[in-house]
């Protein structure tokens, strides 16, 4: 991603921008959808953030972690949108149920029984939305606890605690007997 950003900044390379978009738009949309429910609005918000990235590409050399920057911008834009449509002042971050987990391989290929893995799957899907979002960002987007904390505007401790809650729940199911 950093390489693409350099090409965008130094050569105004439109292909690099398109590549960046194609590679990440998917994840950006899903992330935006964890704040705004509607897909169309999520897409619009992400597109706006990327228009700004191009228009202000000359300033990107001041950004240390571009991925964290983009996710943070998307989150802020989502919260602004929510504030603009709700009548009362609402500064609290509400996370929607945007993620559903599933197993990427046949349960027979993992070391635990099919029933057990299904129970665990249900357990992950039943986690509170915010906890699920954090679990997802760490697991799949490859962010560290610190980065997730930075993006969501939470403390490192909170993020770590949420992640532990998710793991603890799985652990209890696995070793209940």
């Amino acid at each position: 991603m950093q390489q693409l950003i350099t090409r965008i900044r130094e050569d105004a390379d439109e292909f690099a921008f398109n590549e960046l978009y194609r590679n990440h738009a998917h994840n950006f949309f899903r992330f935006a959808q964890s704040f705004v429910r509607e897909r169309e609005i999520a897409e619009e918000i992400v597109n706006d953030v990327l228009v700004r990235l191009w228009v202000e590409r000359s300033k990107t050399d001041q950004i240390r972690n571009i991925q964290v920057y983009l996710y943070t911008s998307i989150k802020n834009a989502c919260l602004n949108h929510i504030r603009s449509i709700s009548s009362k002042r609402n500064n609290e971050m509400k996370v929607t149920e945007a993620y559903y987990f599933h197993l990427s391989v046949d349960p027979s290929q993992i070391l635990i029984s099919k029933e057990l893995s299904l129970t665990m799957l249900t357990a992950v899907n039943d986690l509170p939305p915010r906890c699920k979002l954090i679990f997802k960002m760490v697991k799949e987007d490859g962010f560290s606890c610190k980065e997730v904390a930075c993006i969501l505007g939470l403390s490192d401790k909170t993020v770590f605690a949420q992640l532990s809650i998710a793991l603890k729940k799985l652990h209890t199911i696995l070793y209940a007997k």
């Binding site: 599933h102 993992i110 665990m120 697991k139």
Partner: peptide
């Protein structure tokens, strides 16, 4: 035994 946990989280992805 504890490997199971890692094993499970490894194959867990969002739908």
């Amino acid at each position: 035994e504890y490997r199971k946990m890692q094993n499970f989280t490894d194959v867990l992805t969002t739908e």
